[in-house]
């Protein structure tokens, strides 16, 4: 049976992880490679790295991070942030990422999805979407870009379907309303999108405790759940979360390394 994936997200700026990650022990909390390895050893199913570097001169540093991550972890990872062309995609995929995600750039230039899927295969191309509640939209949710600061004219459901048609192989669906609250994922949004598309949906935004993940993976019909703060701040380990998902009857990968 296909298992529900637990995905950890790391923001990277100028080659360093940015969230105020608190850990005991010897992990260099600013080093994305050490962080990735830390979660890998705990049995994380997948990782996402977002490059939030301000300047294009720092781009090379980020590619170097991707290469070093690829040499140290042996589970899939996705890279996003600052991907505006097929060449940008090629650079991170050649550096060792399995998947590349496009968000604002895809809204501004939807053809990048077609071009990416045509060059590398749909399984590599992830649509990152930020959606905000808006009763004026047909589905009740509006697509927003630039980290939620800029509203667009796109309806969230219509955009998800369009992205799938253009060749996206997966959607990371982030609720702007839930993001940062730690009060739980936006269930109606996640369920609506996940039931409408034929590609996997990764729920994002709002995770604060394992029950939230259980909820979005069952009622929300998500294929995977993305977490950041709840593991970075040390409130929960990967094992804590997976054990609770297992107890809730969800199929998860509990056995991840030889005894």
């Amino acid at each position: 049976m296909l298992e529900k994936r637990l995905v950890v997200c790391l923001d990277v700026r100028d080659g360093k992880t940015t969230k105020g990650i608190k850990f005991q022990g010897n992990v260099d909390i600013g080093d994305p490679v050490e962080m990735a390895r830390f979660y890998y050893e705990q049995g994380v199913d997948e990782l996402v790295f977002y490059d939030i570097t301000a300047s294009s001169e720092q781009r090379g540093i980020f590619i170097d991070v991707v290469e070093r991550v690829a040499a140290h972890i042996f589970v899939p990872f996705c890279v996003g942030g600052g991907i505006g062309s097929v060449e940008d995609m090629r650079a991170v995929l050649l550096a060792g990422a399995e998947k590349v995600s496009v968000n604002s750039q895809a809204v501004l230039n939807p053809g990048i999805i077609d071009a990416g899927a045509g060059s590398f295969g749909a399984q590599c191309i992830v649509l990152g979407m930020d959606a905000a509640r808006d009763p004026a939209m047909k589905s009740g949710y509006r697509v927003v870009i630039n980290g939620g600061r800029t509203p667009t004219e796109k309806d969230a459901l219509a955009w998800a379907l369009e992205a799938e048609r253009r060749g996206a192989g997966e959607i990371v669906l982030n609720s702007i309303d839930a993001d940062g609250t730690q009060d739980g994922y936006e269930i109606p949004l996640t369920r609506m999108i996940s039931e409408a598309v034929g590609i996997p949906v990764v729920a994002s935004g709002g995770a604060g405790k394992p029950e939230h993940l259980a909820e979005v993976l069952s009622e929300g019909k998500a294929d995977a759940a993305l977490v950041a703060s709840m593991v970075h701040y040390g409130s929960y380990s990967i094992a804590d979360i997976k054990q609770q998902l297992d107890a809730a009857g969800l199929p998860v990968r509990l056995r991840y390394r030889p005894e």
Binding site: M1, L2, E3, R5, D45, A122, Q123, G169, E170, G198, I199, P200, D223, A224, R253
Partner: peptide
């Protein structure tokens, strides 16, 4: 087969 209501590609961890 798509008609079985399965998402394709089959993507993720499986036993």
């Amino acid at each position: 087969p798509k008609e079985r209501g399965l998402k394709v590609p089959h993507m993720g961890w499986n036993q």
